[in-house]
Amino acid sequence: MENIGWKRFGVLICAEDSEYVKNIYGGFFGLFTKMLEEEKETWDMYKVSCGEFPKDDELNLYDGFVITGSCCDAYGNDKWICDLINLIKKLDSMNTKILGICFGHQVLCRALGGKVGPSPTGWDIGVRSITLSSHICPSSLDLPTKLSIIQCHKDEVLELPTEAEIIAKSDKTAIEMFKYGDHIMGIQGHPEYSKDLLLHLIDRLTQRNFIMEDFAVGARERAVMLEPDTNAWKRLCISFLKRNPKFVQSKSTC
C-alpha cells in the first residue's frame, strides 16, 4: 500500500561506489539517507551516471532531489551529464527543491546558466572553514558564522547564474554555496562525508594518479586539523529541503 502523506525524495547518484563505500556506508545513497532521512519519508535512488533517471511523468511525485558528487567534470558533455542538465531545467520549471553537493553544486550552476571550470588554485582536499552569509534563515538554526566542511574537488563554480546568490565563501573558493530562488541550493563541500571516508578517497586519488603522493601527504595532514561540523550541516540541509520555503532572505527580514 502506498504511504499516503509521506514525503518522497530522490538521490541522483553521479559516481560509482567503491567496494569500501558500499561495505562501510551502504554506498553514496546510504551516506545521504543517513544524513537526511526522517520518519514518514520515501527515498529513491537513481544512478544517473549509468543512465538511470526518473520518468518525466513521475517528477511531480517528488518533494525534492539531491545531486551527489562525481569524479567527472560538470563542464563535460557526456550524454548522462547533458541528460542531467535537462532534468535540472525541468525541475527548476516545477520549483522542485534541489540540493547539489560538489559536482551537484557545479552542474546546477551550469544548468542554470552559470560557468564551471577547473579551480585556478588547484585541488582542495581536507577540512576547510567556510564563512556563511549573515542572512541564512531560519534563525532558529542558530548557525555560527563559520562552519567546517570536508572538501575534495579540483573544479569550482566560476560565475553564478543570473539571479543566483552567494551564501558562503572560503579563503580558497569564492563560491562555496549558492542559492537560486527558494528551491535550489548548491554546496561545494561534502556535508555527508566522514573523515574516514576522506582518507579513503585520498588513497584512491593517489592510486589512480589524480594526485601525487607528496600532495596526498599534505592532504592527510590537513584532514586532521579541523573537525567537520557534521550536525550543523545536517540541520542546514534538512531545513533547506523540507522546512523553509524562504531559506535565505534579506537581513532586514531575518
Score class of each variant (00 low, 15 high):
I187H: 12
E41P: 01
T42A: 15
F210D: 07
P191H: 04
A15W: 00
E16K: 13
G181C: 07
G100K: 09
E213H: 11
C102D: 03
V107Q: 09
T42Q: 15
E156M: 14
I4E: 12
K97V: 01
M35K: 14
S170I: 01
R208G: 01
L91P: 02
F28W: 01
D229N: 12
T173L: 05
E41Y: 01
Y62E: 03
K234L: 03
N23P: 03
E156W: 05
D155V: 07
K242H: 07
N77Y: 08
D83S: 13
P161E: 12
F28Q: 11
I136M: 06
K179Y: 02
S140L: 11
G122R: 12
Y193V: 00
T206P: 05
I101S: 00
I67H: 10
C71F: 02
V224S: 10
L87R: 06
D142W: 01
G5D: 04
P245W: 13
C254T: 10
E163A: 09
H105T: 06
G76Y: 11
C102T: 06
I24C: 10
Y193F: 15
C137D: 03
S250T: 15
L147G: 04
N244W: 12
L147N: 05
F53N: 06
G186P: 04
L59F: 01
D44Q: 10
V11L: 06
P191N: 08
H183D: 05
F103Y: 10
G5L: 03
D124L: 14
F240W: 12
T96Q: 00
A223H: 07
A216I: 13
P54F: 14
R243I: 07
F215L: 14
E213A: 15
M185P: 03
